[in-house]
Design a protein around this nucleic acid. Structure first.
Lengths: 139, 139
DNA sequence: ATGGTCCTTCCAATCATGGGAAGGTCAAGG
DNA sequence: CCTTGACCTTCCCATGATTGGAAGGACCAT
């Protein structure tokens, strides 16, 4: 047990904040941590591995519930890679849908801004586009 | 006052849900609505205009606090179009930053998925990439 | 023993939206 | 007149991920 880390050390080693480590434990994403004499949480190599896994998955935008499934698959030697791939590709599709949505927003907004003088006069196509009393929808 | 709408009618006419109309009022984004004898909220043409404005601004992804500023500018005849344009372009930059972030996520994930067989075997580069005991960071 | 740093728990805030309960109001029809 | 059903009211709670802080206990070095 000489390599057990405190939550602060595990946080530094994994990139997950101590706050979040406690939170993940509280929602059952991580197993209940071992405790020291002084009731401090203790983390072994496997725990740190899990934390790093979560950190990387979060940085790829996976929601926690999907990470829960990914962790289960990671532990399960009977898994099939198709299960993992399916989760990954579903997430890619989600990301791409959001990207497309935001690109539409940005394009529409740039189009409006393009015609705005941006000077001291009150005249503004952006506000007109938002108010659009003329109900001129783009299509 | 013959053209005053109930919250349900105003909702249909503006595209903003009744729940949200009440919420916007409660946070001061909209003025307190007039009330009927039976304490129902009543909405006139100007109110519906505001609701539509909010709906369009939300559909462009503006956060409520920015919409608050946009509404103030919309009401203010002394505004300068540069104020509006600044809010719009700041939001475009925010959108583009998020888009870029998500594109990186999607690209990294597609790269991992590309090498995954997606069959019944447990072997999986995606999980390996997330676990990455080999600590192979991309750069 | 004392200060500083770590830890513990709990509560609350963010952002925008929605769900639902418990009850009041209104218009139409029996 | 009374019921029915659709609408409205307020209030509380949930989402998703993270962060902030308060109040208190534990640890370690000087």
């Amino acid at each position: 047990m000489s390599d057990a880390l405190s939550i602060g050390a595990a946080s530094k080693s994994s990139g997950v904040s101590a706050k979040m480590i406690r939170h993940y434990e509280s929602i059952g994403l991580l197993p209940l941590a071992e405790r020291s004499n002084g009731n401090y949480r203790l983390y072994g190599p496997q725990d740190v591995h899990n934390l790093r896994f979560i950190h990387r998955a979060r940085s790829l935008g996976f929601p926690l519930e999907t990470i829960r499934e990914l962790l289960a698959l990671c532990r399960n030697r009977q898994r099939s890679s198709s299960q993992v791939k399916k989760l990954a590709l579903t997430h890619v599709a989600t990301l791409e849908a959001k990207i497309a949505e935001m690109q539409e927003m940005a394009a529409a907004l740039k189009h409006l801004a393009q015609n705005c003088h941006g000077d001291e006069r009150p005249d503004c196509p952006i506000l007109e586009g938002l108010a659009s009393d003329s109900a001129a929808r783009c299509h």
